[in-house]
Amino acid sequence: MKAGIIFTGTGPILVLTSYDSFDDPKFVEKLARKGIMKFVAHELEVDMVAKRYGQQYKIIMNDVKQEEDLRVLDYNGHNVFYNFSFSEMGPAIRHE
């Protein structure tokens, strides 16, 4: 399981995914089907996300399939951006 912030044209979203990486072609395709063609992704530690999102994290995790799945944990860009410092984010993965 991976967690990450995806910076899109409309702002950041926090996602959970069963894909191996944020540059996996199938992950990129799934985002494209949601209208996200260009993005910058930063991986986050799953335990840190679980701790900060508590019950909301548990609810979403119960809905995530084991393979090839993607769930938005938080789409409130302001909340996502300010819940994590830059030092907590992994290296940038860019797609365009």
Results as ranks from 00 to 15, higher is better:
2 K>H: 08
3 A>R: 05
4 G>D: 02
5 I>H: 02
10 T>G: 07
10 T>M: 08
14 L>T: 03
14 L>N: 02
14 L>M: 06
15 V>F: 05
16 L>R: 00
16 L>T: 06
17 T>Q: 01
18 S>K: 04
19 Y>A: 01
20 D>H: 12
20 D>Q: 13
21 S>K: 05
22 F>T: 02
23 D>T: 13
24 D>W: 05
25 P>W: 08
26 K>M: 10
28 V>L: 04
28 V>Q: 04
31 L>F: 07
32 A>D: 13
32 A>R: 11
33 R>D: 12
34 K>P: 05
35 G>L: 03
36 I>M: 03
36 I>K: 11
37 M>N: 15
38 K>Y: 07
39 F>E: 02
39 F>D: 00
40 V>M: 07
41 A>T: 03
42 H>D: 02
47 D>G: 14
48 M>C: 08
50 A>G: 05
50 A>T: 02
51 K>F: 13
51 K>R: 14
52 R>M: 08
53 Y>S: 02
53 Y>N: 01
53 Y>K: 01
55 Q>S: 14
55 Q>F: 15
55 Q>T: 15
57 Y>A: 06
57 Y>F: 15
58 K>T: 14
58 K>Y: 12
58 K>G: 12
60 I>C: 01
62 N>R: 14
65 K>H: 13
67 E>K: 14
68 E>H: 13
68 E>Y: 13
69 D>T: 10
69 D>H: 06
70 L>R: 00
72 V>K: 02
75 Y>W: 14
78 H>Q: 13
79 N>A: 12
80 V>Q: 02
80 V>Y: 03
81 F>V: 10
81 F>A: 15
81 F>K: 15
87 S>Y: 09
87 S>R: 13
88 E>C: 05
90 G>A: 06
91 P>Q: 12
93 I>R: 08
94 R>Y: 13
96 E>R: 13
